[in-house]
Amino acid sequence: MSSLSPHRNSDEPPPAEDRDYSLRAVDRVCAILNLLQESVDGITLNEVVEATGMPKSSAYRYLWTLEAHRYVERDEATGLCRLGLGFLGMQSRHLELLRERVRPWLEGVRDEFGETANLGLLDSDHIIYIDIIESRRGVRLAASRGDRDPLHSTALGKAITAHLPEARVRELLERSGMPARTERTIVTVEDYLAELDKVRAQGYAVDDGENEADGRCVAVPLLGTNLPAAISLSAPAARFPQRDVAGAAKALRRIAEQISTRPSGEVA
């Protein structure tokens, strides 16, 4: 007569030594994302293959799928992959903290100059407005929160892309195109790269009637936030002459420096 095993309720979990809840596909995705998170400059397809032991064709499909969902960005020129902006939705609290920290400063610079102040973020190949503190004047230059604008024609776009690798800037411009928004819009990659040299040298970016024919805007990057973000002041060009741009830029740079000296989770 054979012995019977002790009865175990089917709803009870198996003993710890018998448990294996892992899913191979999820394990592979986590391995790839861990590699991306640890990399500064990005990783290649071959590095994914070596680190995970996956066949090259499988690694390519995983990266392609992650890229399609914007969790991975791939540099067409170098083939390097890095974490994409799809994760920003998961960092909504981080963005909200940034908005809360920056808002009092933007209100201050709005009151100082009487013009609209903005907080913008790189989202794929465009700028998205995270916060806008509108001028109190009847006629003003202002977007709406959530609006998107091109990189190549805006001061916010220039301020952010000036601190990205050139290969990535070229890729973003190729993806978005460089349509002429006005007669003053920069429409060639080489001219835009030359403009970014100027931005880095002077520490701020200017949209001089390039996005709106009658508008002028100055922006500086928020380098201490670990996000591709910038702040700006925008106004009708008639009220914001070129002679006032440097002063506005100085005020914005003071804000950026104050924000950079605070821990990422600290609210002003």
Rank of each mutant, 00 (worst) to 15 (best):
S39K: 10
S135N: 02
R28H: 06
H126L: 12
A31R: 05
I127W: 01
A68F: 05
R145M: 10
P104D: 05
S3Q: 13
L95Y: 06
T182A: 07
L66K: 03
A68M: 10
Y21W: 13
S176G: 12
V206T: 08
S92G: 13
R253S: 15
A235Y: 03
E210K: 08
Y62A: 00
R262M: 15
R184M: 10
D27N: 12
V218M: 03
N211I: 07
R243K: 11
F240R: 03
R110K: 08
L141K: 09
I231K: 00
R170N: 06
I259S: 09
T52Y: 01
A180I: 10
A180E: 08
A238P: 02
L97A: 13
L97W: 06
R168K: 11
S58W: 05
S232W: 06
Y192F: 14
S232K: 01
R103G: 06
G138Q: 11
A219D: 00
S92A: 15
H69I: 14
D131S: 06
L98H: 04
A230H: 04
P14F: 15
D197L: 12
L222M: 04
R175D: 07
L4W: 07
G114N: 02
S92R: 14
R140S: 10
N211Y: 15
T52C: 01
C30I: 09
T44G: 12
P104L: 04
T116C: 02
R184T: 11
A167R: 08
D197K: 15
M178G: 05
A249N: 01
H126C: 10
